[in-house]
Amino acid sequence: MSVPQKITSLGKVVVVGGCGFLGHHIVKLILERLPASQISVLDLRTTANRQDSPTVSYHDGDISDLDAMQAFFAKTKPDVVIHTASPHFHLPAAVHDKVNVTGTKNLLKAAQDSGVKAFVYTSSASVVLGPHTELVNADETWPLVTGDAQPEYYTTTKAYAESAVLEANRTPTSFLTCAIRPAGIFGEGDIQVLPPMINTYRTGKNKFQIGENENLFDFTYVGNVAYGHLLAAQALLHTHRILPTVPLDSEKVDGEAFFITNGQPVYFWDFIRAVWHAAGDRTKLSQVWHLDKDFAYVIGTVMENLFWVLGKKPTLTRAQARYSTMHKYHSIKKANARLGYKPLVDLEEGIKRGVQYILDQDEKAAQKKGQ
């Protein structure tokens, strides 16, 4: 089986979480590259990031409600499901269970019952990251880290959901699944990567760094992640066409997970400084203070405990101290070989687009306030 090139439409596709950060970029890319597709966006609320297109419809729905999902799928009868919905990282554990685990299993059940051909799940590159592990060119052979071994409960639920998706592959035989593991998604509309970095610059906290900036880290432009999802959906449809034939292990996409990154691991603080520079920063390296990583970890511990008592979020946490000084980058050889994935937008251009989006939004807000 060669890398698929002839899928020109996804048919009827449901993008779950299609009004979210990644989801709406996927919808946009489908419209650009596979315009004959009929897109149904399913989200808890569909008021944001809507595309003005006659081929896109919007539907409010709660994926933790199995009956509602079965009714929706019975009505829309999709060929493809791309499931990007996930709660914010900092929400309570019960919410992560409800959405990531129960919600994903509900979608799988509804998809199986309604005859869906292809199911693509947005997992996380962090599912292989343990508390004492650094990721150096990590690939898909690395084991999942869950439960007590996984310090982030959110990541545990993403891993459980991924496992459920891959275990559901070919049950029935015509139901094909795979998982995409993006790393450090940023770009237009993100709320977790670029905005805090720019806020750090604007509040004058950009004149220090933790550690010696020797650790390589993966950041991934959102358009590239969206592209990875489209390639995965096309590959699953390609496999569906040749059923019951099973591809060679070296070509297999269904039942598999794939890391998707920019393929440009960068020194952690170099990325942040590039973001600050795009936002207007001209601080010289000679003006930057270096904070020892162990000392920063201690400070993070103290601040977490203090701010917990106050019911507030600290400006420095143990997780931030660790992430800013550890190696965390991945291999995309498997995605390249089996999906034909190559990043569409390089890191420099992605930073430029993402920061400019924030600057434009700020300008619009200022103009509106001044009216």
Results as ranks from 00 to 15, higher is better:
N199I: 14
F175G: 00
R181F: 05
A164P: 00
P182D: 09
F186S: 03
I191G: 13
A168H: 02
T171W: 13
E188R: 13
T146H: 01
T171P: 07
V136D: 12
T156G: 03
N169G: 04
L194H: 08
P151H: 08
V193A: 05
S174T: 11
R181L: 08
R170C: 12
N137L: 10
A149H: 02
Y160G: 03
T171Q: 15
C178G: 07
Y153S: 05
A138K: 04
M197S: 01
S163M: 11
I191Q: 14
K158R: 11
E152L: 14
A161V: 06
Y154I: 07
P151Y: 03
V193E: 04
S163E: 14
I198G: 11
S163Y: 02
Y153F: 09
A149T: 06
A168R: 12
G189A: 05
P195H: 04
M197C: 09
L176C: 07
L135D: 12
Y201R: 08
M197W: 00
I191D: 14
E167L: 08
N199M: 13
A179V: 12
D139P: 12
V145Q: 01
Y154T: 04
L135R: 12
P172M: 10
T157W: 02
N137C: 06
A179E: 12
N169Y: 01
P151E: 04
V145I: 15
P143Y: 02
G189C: 09
A138F: 04
F175S: 06
C178D: 11
T177K: 10
Q150I: 01
E152D: 13
A164R: 01
L176Y: 02
E162H: 01
L144V: 05
G187E: 03
A179P: 09
A149V: 09
L166C: 07
T157V: 05
V193W: 02
A149C: 03
A164E: 08
G187Q: 00
V165P: 12
T141W: 13
A183E: 14
G147V: 00
T146C: 04
G184L: 09
Y201M: 08
P196N: 08
P196I: 03
T155F: 09
L194F: 02
R202E: 14
A183R: 15
D139T: 04
L166I: 00
Q192K: 11
E134V: 14
Y153N: 05
T173G: 15
I180F: 08
T157P: 06
A161T: 00
N199A: 15
I180H: 08
I180Q: 02
N137Q: 10
V145T: 02
G184I: 03
V136T: 07
V136L: 07
P143N: 06
I198F: 13
F186M: 04
T155G: 00
L144P: 01
Y201E: 06
I198H: 09
P143F: 02
L166M: 00
Y160V: 06
S163A: 14
E167M: 06
T146F: 06
G189L: 07
T155N: 12
E152R: 13
L194G: 11
